[in-house]
Structure formats: C-alpha cells, structure tokens
C-alpha cells in the first residue's frame, strides 16, 4: 500500500458515498445514468469473485464488500425506489456496445486463460468505459448538477491516482501489470474533458453546463 493507492481508494469510496447520499437526500436520481451504475455493479461482481477464493487483508475484503453492496444499493435506488425520477429518456447509451467488446478483448488479451482471470480482465476493461453512459447522459442534457460533478470528479480521480500508484510500484516493488495500466490510462483520459470543465466552472461556483 502506498499513498497514491490509499488516496485513490478513498476517492473511489467518496464518489460512491456522494452518489448514494445525493440520491437519498434529494429522493431523486435525475441526471444519473442507471446504465453506468449497472455496468459498475457488473465490474465489481466479476472482479471481486476472489473474495471467495483468496484472502488478502481485512482492508481489501472490507472495501470489496463495500463496493459490491453500495453499487447494488445504487442500482436498486435508481431502478426501484426512485424509478419515477430516473431519466430513462436521456439514458440511451447501449450497454452491449461496451460489454461485448470487453468480453472479446478479455478473451484475447489476458494473463491466463482461466475463468477467474478472464473475468478479472473483463472487469478491468469494462470499468475503463463504464462511465460512458453517464458522460453521454450529461452531454445529452447539456448540464450536470453540482453534486453530480463532484461525484464524477472523485470517480475520475481514483483511476488517475492509481496510475501514480502503478508508477510507484514499478520503481519500488518491480511490479508491472500492463493490462491495468493501459485500461486505467484509457479510463482516466475519458474524464479529461470533464476535468477541464470541472476545474474551470464548478470550482468557480458555477454549474457544470456544456459549451453550446
């Protein structure tokens, strides 16, 4: 564990909590892509199957359980409890366009051809692009609530911090995993346009509104 991974994990946790609190307090999930949340749930479930096979640490186990349970709770809030507020007309990105290529890529480019390893690799690839339905929804409506912007910023920071963690691990632990690094890089790049708007607008007290 190093400072980048820890802050990355905390940013990830913060993002999840912000989203759950936003939905719960406002009793509304408007502006949130249910499809991105379903994809993240698929990511956590396929990646954390090792909860049943390997024990790493209490921290590792606890965080994995939190990610799986909170993502399931988020999906439940969007599709059941507050479904009347769900923006289904704007949330039109096709999930299969992300899931199917991720499956194919995981079958082709992975470390070992075992069920657990292919599922882990699939989860890495899918996570890299899982935010696209959410970004698509924001671009369709042309704006995002400030709290949604904070959520996206925390979620985007997490993989960026992991990139620093991988640089650290390469130098100090001689650890290198190209699959994580390339996918993490793609994931972070997808947020760049949003990061720019966040820093130039939201941090200056304005709402995130896309340029016409």
């Amino acid at each position: 564990m190093n400072i980048f991974r820890l802050t990355g994990d905390l940013a990830h946790l913060t993002a999840i909590i912000i989203l759950l609190l936003k939905i719960w307090k406002t009793r509304s999930c408007s502006g949130i892509s249910g499809k991105s949340q379903i994809l993240f749930t698929v990511v956590y479930i396929t990646r954390y199957l090792d909860l049943f096979t390997n024990y790493i640490s209490a921290y590792n186990t606890l965080m994995k359980i939190i990610f799986v349970v909170s993502s399931l709770a988020t999906v439940f809030l969007i599709y059941f409890k507050f479904k009347a507020t769900y923006d289904r007309n704007h949330d039109t990105f096709r999930m299969e366009f992300l899931i199917i290529p991720s499956i194919i890529l995981a079958l082709l480019i992975r470390h070992e051809f075992t069920v657990m390893e292919v599922l882990w690799t699939f989860s890495i690839y899918l996570e890299a692009v899982a935010i696209l339905p959410q970004l698509f929804l924001v671009s369709k409506t042309g704006e995002a609530e400030t709290i949604t912007s904070h959520y996206l910023f925390a979620l985007g920071s997490y993989r960026g911090l992991y990139l620093l963690n991988w640089i650290w691990r390469y130098y100090f632990e001689n650890f290198l995993d190209w699959i994580s690094i390339v996918a993490g890089f793609v994931q972070t790049v997808l947020y760049c346009d949003f990061f720019y708007l966040y820093v130039t607008r939201v941090l200056h007290g304005r709402k995130l509104r896309l340029p016409a």
């Binding site: 994995k64 990610f67 470390h111 390893e117 632990e173 001689n174 650890f175 290198l176």
Partner: peptide
Amino acid sequence: IRYTLLKDEL
C-alpha cells in the same frame, strides 16, 4: 518484472 495473479489492488 513481477506480476502476481493474487490481486491485492481494488
């Protein structure tokens, strides 16, 4: 370069 199948990252 070491790669481990035991995934300690989240």
